[in-house]
């Protein structure tokens, strides 16, 4: 794809723009989620006063203040740490987040790389962050970090499976693994012959969507599945030895991945960039905005759960994945398949 908004500007420029967009999108997305949900929604839910204060109006300055704090902090590395691995780990985590965005379409033509196996790719690269987490935990030379990293590895691997299986239903229904194809299928679909809204798969794949959200919550290591960081047990798990900018990387990775998963969920079951009846160049223009709105709705759910629930125990978490989520996901695939064949 060498076109961006139907203007041929050469592959070099396209590549540059795409890189800048993706590189800018993650921190921006992380900031938006951090600001909207972590600072504002949570403050309202928890009657917090602090984050509502700085800067006057609604505490808008809080995020800037937090960012400045991170930048000022001393970069500390434990003496016993494996220095190279320690330094590399945050980057690995963030890179996995960047890579997801490569395939998420924000318009019919607004996609960095329109892969045919988009879904597969996105879920595959999202699990790369495990490596970064393990590296961080091991290199920190800290028992809490090690425990956190091992928990994270066990958990992320366990929840890869329900995450993938939950998506399979959508893929079966759309008949493609291309994310743009899935969006188009939803846009052009019809609900019992009525095509006024298209056919957002949330109507048929609500089970898959619920499973996806649960598994995504675990992949994001957010409450109720935040054992790897488990503030009250492992202090901060694999992040415990990281300070300042390196910690900020993890933070961006965490919220950036949340952003990416929300975008993925919005694309898979909420119709992504598509609005009914909007095609072509208009869709390219409106697409990012539409996707953003849908993404924020999903992100709201994710963070709502995060701020409400207590944390499960590691064994309960595993039991939940293997005993409940995976069988339900398999049943969902079976039912979807049967409908697909017979309808």
């Amino acid at each position: 794809m060498t076109h961006l908004l139907a203007v041929d500007i050469g592959w070099g420029w396209t590549l540059a723009i795409k890189t800048v967009v993706v590189l800018g999108l993650i921190p921006l997305g992380a900031l938006i989620l951090g600001y909207t949900f972590l600072l504002k929604m949570m403050s309202h839910m928890q009657s917090r006063l602090g984050p509502m204060d700085p800067g006057g109006f609604h505490g808008w300055f809080q995020l800037v203040g937090d960012g400045m704090k991170f930048l000022q902090k001393e970069d500390i590395m434990p003496e016993q740490a494996d220095r190279r691995v320690f330094a590399l780990a945050p980057a690995v985590v963030v890179i996995s987040t960047f890579l997801i965005f490569v395939v998420i379409p924000t318009g019919p033509r607004l996609v960095v790389k329109d892969l045919d196996v988009g879904v597969f790719y996105a879920l595959a690269v999202s699990s790369l962050s495990i490596i970064g987490v393990l590296m961080a935990g091991w290199a920190s030379a800290n028992k809490f970090a090690l425990l956190g990293a091992l928990r994270a590895a066990a958990q992320l691997i366990a929840y890869e499976l329900p995450l993938l299986l939950a998506v399979v239903g959508v893929v079966v229904q759309a008949g493609t693994m291309n994310l743009n194809g899935i969006v188009t299928a939803q846009q052009n679909g019809a609900i019992f012959g009525w095509d006024g809204l298209g056919n957002p798969y949330i109507l048929t794949q609500f089970v898959g969507f619920a499973l996806f959200l649960v598994a995504a919550q675990a992949e994001l290591t957010q409450t109720p599945f935040d054992m790897p960081v488990a503030e009250s047990e492992l202090v901060s798990g694999y992040m415990v030895e990281y300070t300042g900018f390196r910690f900020l990387f993890f933070f961006i990775g965490e919220f950036g991945t949340a952003f990416a998963f929300a975008a993925l969920a919005a694309t898979l079951v909420l119709g992504g960039w598509a609005l009914p009846g909007v095609h072509g160049g208009t869709a390219d223009l409106l697409g990012p905005l539409v996707l953003f709105v849908k993404l924020m709705a999903v992100a709201f759910l994710i963070f709502w759960v995060r701020f409400t629930y207590p944390r499960l125990r590691e064994d309960q978490l595993q039991a939940m994945a293997w005993k409940y989520l995976i069988p339900i996901a398999l049943a969902n695939i079976l039912v979807t398949g049967l409908f697909k064949v017979w309808l």
Binding site: M42, M45, Q46, S47, R48, T223, P224, D226, A230, E231, S232, F307, T308, Y309, P310, R311
Partner: peptide, 16 residues
Amino acid sequence: MGLQVGAMTPAFFGFR
């Protein structure tokens, strides 16, 4: 107690 089992919100309600 909520905070220790991982739920943040009750802790703030408690302090409030």
